[in-house]
Write a protein that binds this DNA or RNA. Structure first.
Length: 793
DNA sequence: CAGTGAGCGAGCTTCCGCTTGACTT
């Protein structure tokens, strides 16, 4: 019916474009890729020049048939998928799967969603570029080969259901190597000396740092002793102008980093909020590697800046991407209209929008100007110097809207008026013991930044990568409490040296990524056997070849063949020769039994073991706690694990034991479990009287919880729960209607409530599924009218 | 919901990149 059908990737994009184009255009979206290699099988015919076998993805069947219908009636089909490798492939898959005609199919591209850009693109259609399509096929096939050949090796050699891949395995490697660096890091202490002076004949104070850091306390004491008689004088005051420039507009990764730093958002949280803003038309597309702003956005920014802050705040800038892997199919992330200073929506949406608005506006603003002052202070009887620095803001420029928050970028104090040759009197000198710090653990956003620098992963995959490595059990996002540490604080006050010890908290971590034992063992295995794939530069080097393919200078199947021959060879050798890898480590000998103690990964995770499995006597096993690790656990700690379960006494003629289970430490009595109070009870020292107390507390709680029990074959219980009274029957829970007094219910009345719920709701009344598996059986999905808004026409 | 860890073998798991859905309590 309609003359023109335009196909884009995203439905939100389709909606806006439809507004720009006239009535004779219908704009639909493909929802990304419509086909992929077979999900279960390899999907690649190795012996037939690596011919890929594509299938329409199950969740895309509907949209594909809808598009098929529409293309039949359209005079011209415009394929407007993104202008990057994946977009070109999507165009070709559409062309192929929809069985389109070359004569009336046109490929168009645009980098910004503006009326001008789209009309221009319609005027300049082209053909699908097969070289680029082939480069995408090579990328896809290589990733499938690597993933589907490496993962099964792990199932055999380490543990079932594990996975490996070009991207995720490097992400894990980064974390493992950083963790090792941290483990082997030896913290050293040094002393930082600073002094507070009184400016002679004046009331000003001046704080300055000594140019020298001392390694030992002896040096500090000697210096302070010396300082008792020294004279201090200003020898130099240097003033110089400095400036700071705004950062480029947001890309996916910089948005994730900044939202993490400023709001503590996880990367997936950032993406979910951004998606909302995008879908409601408030920001441009949020998965991008481009820092480019459209002409429209730049002129809008100009107007906003000039009319709100004045001409002197404007500085038009074009940013260029630094990362080589960028494909720049979209704009930077920016508000669709910079005239909108804030938006409605959830708190998170408001916050993130404001951040994007500020960053975009700031990028078109003048740099901030400062005057920096350095003051050098000499010491009469020493070659060392004191140095004081200060910074005065002369012109705020972009800082008017965008605060940069960097580590250690504490607001520098204003310096008092001071001139050269001024004499200074020492008020106090402090020497504080400090410690060198290990390199930091990665946050989610920091890992994304690192991956981007390495050219690994794409804006659309940063968040999924983080969740995959956690789902596989390679990585844990955790907080760690810090430890107390003493440090030396030595002062010279009133010509007296005061030597003091203070304490501080160190090593606290918040929302950091830690590799697990499994992650470490898998990584070591891959590094040992597949160094070249796990290499930080592997992606970069294959990307070069993909580029060659895209330029038509290299045949994709040849490239794959060269890679696969040597890779597959290594796969076979590894399957054949390498040992099962369990991260086994011998810790020593158990004095009590004389048997060897070691740790390894077992079927259920990391564990400790006393004695070999081929010994006559069965070995004893114990699970490591969450805080313990194969690489760092000591013999003593491992042996401690075997002190449980422990019999602590008797109560009501039944034994009381204490142990640690899957959900933490517990007391067991008469086959019932009672959790220990976190932070109060210790399973290793818990005594009989306290154990009984815990049992009684739980019983009291249960008494309050239970309203009534009908003791039938299948007991019916009326209980008090978090959401009020309910009926528990056959492991399922049923709500009691509000107008019913629970105490008054009879057995029959309960059954009535139960049956009422079961009947109309059918089988899916109450299944306590924890994981959201997206297995969809189409067969009986017709029940509900699940049409979306189909209100146009 | 909490204890387990030998081996036999069925049948399962897995990659990266594009996109947005839809269950309740």
């Amino acid at each position: 019916m309609e003359d023109n059908l335009v196909i884009v990737e995203s439905p939100a994009k389709a909606k806006t474009i439809e507004k720009f184009l006239g009535k004779e255009y219908v704009v639909k979206s493909s929802f990304g890729h419509i086909r992929d290699l077979s999900k279960k099988k390899l999907g690649i015919d190795i012996d037939n020049n690596y011919q890929p076998n594509y299938e329409v993805s199950p969740d895309k069947k509907k949209i594909v048939s809808e598009l098929k219908k529409l293309t039949k009636n359209a005079k011209t089909v415009w394929i407007a998928s993104d202008e990057d490798r994946e977009g070109e492939a999507i165009a070709w898959h559409l062309f192929d799967e929809l069985k389109l005609n070359k004569d009336n199919t046109k490929r168009i591209v645009f980098h910004e969603i503006t009326k001008k850009a789209i009309l221009d693109s319609i005027k300049n259609p082209r053909d699908i570029n097969n070289d680029i399509v082939n480069s995408q096929q090579a990328r896809r096939i290589l990733d499938r080969l690597v993933g589907f050949e490496l993962s099964p090796i792990l199932w055999k050699k380490i543990k079932p259901s594990l996975s490996a891949g070009r991207v995720q395995s490097v992400a894990v490697r980064l974390l493992v190597e950083r963790e090792r660096e941290i483990m082997s890091f030896n913290s050293e202490s040094f002393y930082k000396v600073s002094a507070i002076f009184n400016v002679a004949n004046n009331n000003y104070e001046l704080k300055a740092d000594l140019s020298k850091r001392f390694d030992t306390k002896e040096e500090v004491l000697k210096f302070l002793e010396n300082s008792k008689t020294s004279k201090h004088k200003v020898v130099e005051v240097i003033k110089k102008p400095t400036k700071k420039s705004p950062l480029a507009p947001f890309t996916t990764s910089t948005l994730q980093q900044e939202a993490s730093r400023k709001f503590n958002f996880s990367v997936s949280q950032t993406m979910m909020v951004a998606q909302k803003l995008y879908e409601s038309g408030k920001i441009t597309y949020m998965r991008t590697d481009s820092v480019n702003l459209s002409d429209f956005a730049m002129s809008e920014a100009k107007n906003v800046i000039v009319s709100n802050f004045g001409d002197e705040y404007l500085k038009v800038r074009k940013f260029r991407t630094k990362s080589k892997s960028a494909q720049e199919a979209h704009e930077a992330i920016r508000p669709t209209s910079l005239n909108k200073f804030e938006v409605s929506g959830s708190e998170a949406e408001k916050k993130l929008y404001k951040l994007i608005w500020k960053r975009t506006i700031a990028s078109q603003m003048a740099e901030a100007k400062f005057e920096k002052t350095n003051i050098n202070i000499s010491i009469s009887n020493s070659d060392y110097k004191y140095l004081a620095t200060g910074e005065i803001l002369k012109f705020d420029g972009f800082l008017k809207v965008y605060e940069i928050l960097e580590n250690g970028d504490v607001a520098k104090s204003l310096l008092p008026p001071i001139s050269e040759n001024d004499d200074l009197n020492v008020n106090i000198i402090n020497a504080i013991q400090r410690f060198t710090h290990h390199p930091p653990r990665y946050t989610e956003a920091a890992l994304v930044k690192k991956l981007e620098e390495l050219g690994i992963g794409r804006p659309s995959t940063y968040a999924p990568i983080i969740s995959t490595v956690q789902k596989r059990g390679y990585v844990l996002k955790e907080n760690r409490e810090g430890e107390k540490r003493n440090f030396n604080f030595i002062s010279l006050v009133n010509n007296n040296i005061v030597d003091d010890i203070k304490t501080e908290i160190t090593g606290a971590e918040k929302s950091k990524l830690f590799p697990t034992d499994i992650g470490i063992v898998v990584n070591d295995f891959l590094v040992e056997n597949f160094e070249d794939i796990i290499d930080f530069n592997f992606t970069a080097s294959v990307e070069k070849e993909f580029d060659e393919i895209a330029k038509g200078k290299l045949v994709w199947s040849k490239m794959i063949d060269k890679f696969y021959k040597s890779f597959h060879n290594k796969v076979e050798i590894t399957l054949e020769n390498s040992e099962r890898k369990t991260g086994e480590r011998k810790l020593g000998v158990d004095k009590a039994s004389g048997k060897e103690v070691f740790v390894r990964i077992g079927r259920y995770g990391p564990m400790a073991q006393i004695g070999k499995s081929d010994d006559e006597e069965k070995p004893r096993y114990a699970k490591l706690t969450k805080e313990q690790h194969l690489e760092t656990i000591t013999l003593k700690e491992a042996l401690d694990l075997f002190r449980l379960p422990r019999v602590v006494g008797k109560y009501e003629d039944k034994e009381i034991t204490v142990a640690i289970g899957r959900f933490g430490p517990y007391v067991k009595h008469d086959n019932k479990f009672f959790s220990l109070k976190k932070g109060i009870d210790d399973p290793y020292t818990l005594r009989e009287d306290r154990a009984i107390e815990i049992i009684e507390e739980k019983r009291e709680y249960d008494r309050k919880k239970t309203i009534k029990i009908f003791d039938q074959d299948v007991p019916v219980k009326i209980l008090n729960g978090r959401w009020g009274p309910y009926i528990s029957y056959n492991k399922k829970n049923y709500k009691i209607p509000k107008d019913v007094v629970p105490e008054s219910l009879s057995y029959e009345a309960c059954l009535e409530i139960i049956n009422k719920v079961v009947k109309p709701k059918n089988t899916k009344a109450k299944s306590k599924t924890k994981s959201k598996t997206t297995v969809k059986t189409k067969s009986k999905a017709k029940a509900k009218p699940k049409k979306k808004t189909k209100k146009k026409e």
